[in-house]
Design a protein around this nucleic acid. Sequence first.
DNA 1: CAGACAGACTAGCACGTGCTAGTATTTTGT
DNA 2: ACAAAATACTAGCACGTGCTAGTCTGTCTG
Lengths: 338, 338
Amino acid sequence: MAGNKNRREHRHATMADVAAHIGVSRQLVGLAFRNAPGVSAETAARIFAAAEEIGYQPNLAAQALRREGSKYIGVAYHTSHSSTEELLPAIYKEAESRGYKLVLSAISHDRDDQEAINEIIGHRCDGVILISSSLPISRLKKLATSIPLVSLSRRVSGVNCGVVASKGESGIFDAVKYLISLGHEAIAYVDANEMFDHEFRLQGYKTAMKDAKLKPSIKTISGDYIESAGAEAANLFLSAGELPTAIVCANDQIALGLAYAFQKAGVKIPKDVSVIGYDDTIARLPFLDFTTVHQDAVELASAAVSDLAERIEGKKSKAETYLTSAKLVVRSSTAKPR
Amino acid sequence: MAGNKNRREHRHATMADVAAHIGVSRQLVGLAFRNAPGVSAETAARIFAAAEEIGYQPNLAAQALRREGSKYIGVAYHTSHSSTEELLPAIYKEAESRGYKLVLSAISHDRDDQEAINEIIGHRCDGVILISSSLPISRLKKLATSIPLVSLSRRVSGVNCGVVASKGESGIFDAVKYLISLGHEAIAYVDANEMFDHEFRLQGYKTAMKDAKLKPSIKTISGDYIESAGAEAANLFLSAGELPTAIVCANDQIALGLAYAFQKAGVKIPKDVSVIGYDDTIARLPFLDFTTVHQDAVELASAAVSDLAERIEGKKSKAETYLTSAKLVVRSSTAKPR
DNA sequence: CAGACAGACTAGCACGTGCTAGTATTTTGT
DNA sequence: ACAAAATACTAGCACGTGCTAGTCTGTCTG
């Protein structure tokens, strides 16, 4: 009895409370909140005023349970990737404009992709966006059969999902071409073989070098979005004796680590070595001002959400790839060769 | 008719489906999934096997709706703070061990604290953890009356919520003391006045300098967790002519920006200037290896979740502050004065 | 002036689960 | 051997909302 009363006291306001407060039916409050026809303007105003007064907030669990579609999009992402910092807000905005709410599910050392996805499915999201997911293709295929799916920043093939990523090969290609136009010939590339889509960026480098009949020089490092990997690469170059005149890195974080290690060793950027990154996340910070390849978070988010929305609405279900622009942004970490 | 059928086909499996599959009641499946007594081991095994086969995942919305407490903890956080990268996984782990799931709600440029909190309330979370929330005290007070609340990494007073933060004043105090022990006298501090709790860290610096009868030198910069702010500070020092022999920064990101700008200008660290950060996020990366003040994410997360859990269980409701350790970690960015 | 119609509102079921209150069936105690 | 108790299971309501199918009042039409 006491427990029951206690519960009543501490529970949040419901539509019924709002309705009772102004003497209308619960259903009418529902209509008003859904902007459905059949509510007089005057009554609607009273309903919203009452809701505000009692502090009513719709119960999302009840909505998701009852509605045909939950109107949720699940997003599984890594907390440690700097590129998601910009991606998430952009996805929020894009999803909201289409009437979707987001269910965020973090992936980290202690929480793998599958756990993150299970939670999303538990929320009965209408669709899922996986950012840089490391899920094996076989699981992705299976997942795609049970829920609309978009793989963001990881290009997969043979899976019936949307794929959205920036066109790494052309971004890196342009970067190398630019260096060549500056007069560089000894252009090295730092490849991060644990990073998704690294092979496309690498390919852009190889193609550009081949086109110019230059000898490629590739340093492959482990780790993905890790500054220390970049520093490690820098030390490889330093200990090898012969320093290239320009170095292209698979992403900004690697470029930062590399640049930092170089500066520390007295190697000046861009005077001694030109450095280019990829992503335009930290590269854009004024103190770094690195030349990099810009990956537009808004464009990526927009493409991912709109593709997913079409899948949710049943307009498509087959594999489809959308590669967003990857534009070279020239800043102050590049100059003519020494 | 067709639409109805379609819905049936595409909906996710429910407990009823699992039950029908092996010929038991829906309730028994519920008991099994809740690990409640009254299910024979043999039947439980059959139930789980069937669930696995059909791909059943509990509907979290239905659970949250029906259960007395939703068993959710809402977490509002900024995507752009590097310290949350470690905090989130730690909170996940801690919450999970207490039987809570997380509802993440991001705060960004386009999505303010209030929006994030409204979503959390919409999910009927049992409690909220606000990380570095910029909500005005008046709103915090109001919020604390309606839901158990913990403010993480922002010290507030006069609000009936739990407060968990690292003890900035003692961390910075120790850092300055250490520099003094190395022989430094010209020790400057870079204050970020938009960062929460910056005043405590600043106070630690002032106290340590006063104790040693040294003249404090403070550069205040705008922005909070921004590398560029650190670079800006470095340029202030450089243009001022007289360089201090040691600089303590309000956080790691500022220290990185500052160090980078110094290196670029040919100022060696630690030979010319010793630099200390705070947070031990990027400072710990091998390529930086900065001396810093370690803020333990696991300790912070543990304190925040356990305080919140007690509030949810009604064991406390008044303001309570828990300051976690802030331990100086000596690495290679500090040395004797030049 | 009756009938059709539109606007404003209400009734009642359904979503998938948790939980209390049961009912059979087997085991235990004396 | 018979009641008591434990075990294994089922019945049915409730959570807060969306949605279909109503009802009621008043106005328009011919």
